[in-house]
């Protein structure tokens, strides 16, 4: 008898709840695209915002609705992008892995200050006070907006007041690029190939050399020295075309202030900037 009662009781209960729930499910039905959930599960879940959406869930929604592409999530990497794309049956356009690079080497031993800034430690804020405290109004203020913007702890403030990008940790998401009010950070294809003019100043040569010992003075010596004709002037700043550069190093020898460096020499993690600064000082 006991067993029968038990079975009857449980069975009736199950029936009752089943009915109730199925009714509720019909009355309060909300359509949720199951693909959103599947995309969300594939995403790294860092909620870093590099895709431009508030969080991973929002990216997933946007992707399913076709407002962004599968490789919009930069930290996800190639594998994940492919998997995400597979959900909508799309092919991924191969995106090359990139890395953030700081285009200023005017650290506090080489670039002069005009005055002492006293206030909130924020590059954008400090930059509004008389064009910033640095004599060079294009140079890095070193107050660390990029450091705070990086969700992966890949950008750290070096010992000489310039940020250093940890190449291992950097995912190339580009948040630091947007965080820098002076646009000193660019993302470049991940590689050690090529040389770079590590300066962003558009000032005239005279005022550049007054402000910073390693700034590009627009002397065009590198253009003349380059056998590949890979260097051009962008207004008052020399720019090297990485596709043409074959690492011959002629420009480095020709550059009077020592602004040009091979990419392999750029500090790859915190601590290497000291050696780099010393080398740069002796070169200049």
């Amino acid at each position: 008898m006991q067993i029968i009662y038990a079975i009857i009781a449980l069975g009736l209960l199950g029936l009752l709840f089943g009915l109730l729930l199925s009714m509720a499910a019909r009355i309060f039905a909300v359509k949720v695209d199951p693909r959103v959930d599947r995309v969300k599960e594939l995403l790294p879940g860092a909620n870093c915002g590099a895709c431009g959406y508030a969080g991973c869930v929002n990216f997933a929604e946007a992707y399913v609705e076709g407002r962004t592409s599968a490789n919009g999530c930069i930290p996800a990497g190639k594998e994940t992008s492919k998997a995400i794309a597979a959900i909508l049956g799309q092919e991924v356009t191969e995106s090359e892995p990139v890395i953030a690079t700081v285009f200023c080497i005017g650290d506090n031993t080489k670039a002069a200050d005009r005055f002492i800034y006293d206030g909130i430690e924020d590059c954008a804020v400090a930059g509004r006070f008389n064009d910033g405290f640095k004599a060079c109004r294009y140079g890095c203020l070193g107050l660390g907006n990029c450091v705070r913007a990086c969700p992966f702890d890949a950008v750290k403030m070096g010992s000489h007041g310039l940020p250093v990008v940890d190449q291992e940790a950097c995912t190339g998401c580009g948040l630091c690029v947007n965080a820098c009010p002076r646009n000193l950070i660019k993302t470049l294809p991940r590689s050690d190939q090529g040389h770079l003019v590590l300066c962003s100043s558009q000032d005239r040569g005279k005022s550049v050399s007054r402000a910073c010992s390693v700034g590009c003075i627009a002397c065009k010596a590198c253009i003349k020295a380059c056998p590949q004709e890979a260097i051009e002037m962008d207004d008052k700043l020399a720019v090297i075309d990485l596709d043409k550069c074959d690492d011959c190093g002629e420009c480095v020898a020709a550059c009077p202030p020592g602004t040009i460096h091979p990419r392999s020499a750029v500090p790859k993690k915190l601590g290497e900037e000291k050696e780099f600064a010393e080398n740069a000082a002796s070169a200049g």
Binding site: A9, L10, G14, L20
Partner: peptide, 26 residues
């Protein structure tokens, strides 16, 4: 049937929660 206490209670609760969930979602 006191020994069915745990099973029945958890079933009741699970259903109730589901009910609240579907309602709230809408």
């Amino acid at each position: 049937l006191e020994y069915l206490q745990i099973v029945t209670f958890i079933l009741v609760i699970a259903s109730l929660v589901q009910l609240v969930e579907t309602t709230l979602r809408k």
